[in-house]
Design a binder for these strands. Sequence first.
DNA 1: CTGAAAGCGCTAACAC
DNA 2: GTGTTAGCGCTTTCAG
Lengths: 330, 330
Amino acid sequence: MKRITIYDVAKEADVSLATVSRVINGSDVVREDTRVKVQEAIERLGYKPNAIAQGLALQKTTNIALIVPEASFFYTGQIINGLIDVAKIYKYNITLHTTTEGITEMNEIIENIIKSRVDGVVIFNDKLSQEELHTLTIYHVPIVVIGNRMSDETVGSVFVNYEHLVMQFVKEYLDNGKKNIALVEDRKNPQIMKQLKEGLEKVYKEYGLTFENFIQIPKEYRSSYMFLKNYFQDKKHDLVIAYRDSQAMAVLNTAHENNLRVPDDMELVCILDSKYNAMARPQISGFKLPDYDLGAVAMRLLTKMLHQEDEVIDKEIELSYIFTARKSTK
Amino acid sequence: MKRITIYDVAKEADVSLATVSRVINGSDVVREDTRVKVQEAIERLGYKPNAIAQGLALQKTTNIALIVPEASFFYTGQIINGLIDVAKIYKYNITLHTTTEGITEMNEIIENIIKSRVDGVVIFNDKLSQEELHTLTIYHVPIVVIGNRMSDETVGSVFVNYEHLVMQFVKEYLDNGKKNIALVEDRKNPQIMKQLKEGLEKVYKEYGLTFENFIQIPKEYRSSYMFLKNYFQDKKHDLVIAYRDSQAMAVLNTAHENNLRVPDDMELVCILDSKYNAMARPQISGFKLPDYDLGAVAMRLLTKMLHQEDEVIDKEIELSYIFTARKSTK
DNA sequence: CTGAAAGCGCTAACAC
DNA sequence: GTGTTAGCGCTTTCAG
């Protein structure tokens, strides 16, 4: 089948290509009968407008680029779903770009994105330098960052306030004299870790105390599990805070293996909740984070920025969370 | 910043646009000094070739579309990683399209894909009609399907032979007289389920037996858990086969709650292994499926099809798996 | 209401 | 080696 173009349709319908263009773009100046005539020709020929040519002519692609860290789909999956759902509404397509741990390919990706002339970019990445962001802004690519608050005029951001989250949560414990609280490090999410740690340090300070139990997982340990197995042989806390479900489970398992009973001897909470927390025994308490919404809101914000809906828009959007009490806390 | 084009670069470097084009495309007919001159101009102006215009001129976009079921990123994540990794090698970009359960939007997606003139499509979707596939082939879009064998001349496929997998595995049990084997239904993956069921039926037949224990989860149950909790009150098998980790865990938990000890009273295996199986207690045995490779091989196959590397290529690729014995089997 | 023609940015013959 | 020019398929003034 020959590639059929707007010219073919024009000839078939015996009109000019301008008219065909008007029809496919829903212009209302076309007389009804010629509209029908054209529509029929389109149908007959199976014509599909070439989005590339449209992109060239219109100087916009209706593509938006999404950058996420590779292999993190467990968490980003929902974000992506949210993103795509609202992208569909606004007829945007998503091009997916992943960054690989440790490899500084971000520049390559950005280069690529600029060349592909996407209309906008959504970035979910814990490690993104100011400089890289700058490159994008130079080329006037609207950007929304998921996960971190950005205080940049031109960049939008959608995020959860982890500092706030952990402060709120821990207060109750401190009020009840449970001051021995620990945070398990997650090397994969340094920024969030930082927020959690700083949050804890702040509350502790408010209470005239010092936060000390940041459980760092030494680099030589491939998984937290092996380290924690040792750790809990002679350590014990009132409450352990883990970020990911797998770490929470590691705490749970290693605690049990060391005869620490959760939640009686030690409580446990997982920040990034997942269905697996509900499958563990005892079930692990966690925070329901607005992952889907992070994506959906980010995309919505981006479309606003793209359409420049005149009203000044708030480009820093904080989303909230819900604590789900299960059996690992009292 | 004004959009700067190949004309600007040509003027800046005092050459024709053809020469600039040659430089950015690495043509070797350009004299070194003019190449340098052009390169400098490009640098100075911060010029980035417009992929859209290139796409129009070349009749190819170096984009490939990926269609996956929404919300399934837990499993497809690795597939996507594999896909993207090899896509990067061949300089292809990925546009991500998701299908929502129950909504027949596949046609919309296909329409969209055709308009965007991608060079090829990779589909990972358990429910895809022949007709939909046909539309794509009409428009000459090369396709690779992940997950199902396709016996279509023009369509490539990369898959795991689940029928074979389950037959192999179960034989040992039947040989040892453990004939009471059950398979837990997974409504989300009907095709794979079918393969597993048929595999079991085949082996049973080989042994002169009939496979009967297909545990169907009634529609009214939102999760397998609630159903299984009842189920195991008066049922018991030599071996239970679950497809996803969450179902395997549901079996594990509900069995325990009904005082069935795994693996002593009942063994358990999970087809689609995950790290969560290793976190369960007892740890659940499973099959390491080549998820990453499914994506990588699919993409590799697609590039072959695109480049028509003359040699006839095998378009049906079967990948293998590895059984990981843990504590839920004996 | 419809058509003619210029232009979007780039590639690829074909000249020179 | 390098420049000229005709497309690639579509949108959008500007005429009529």
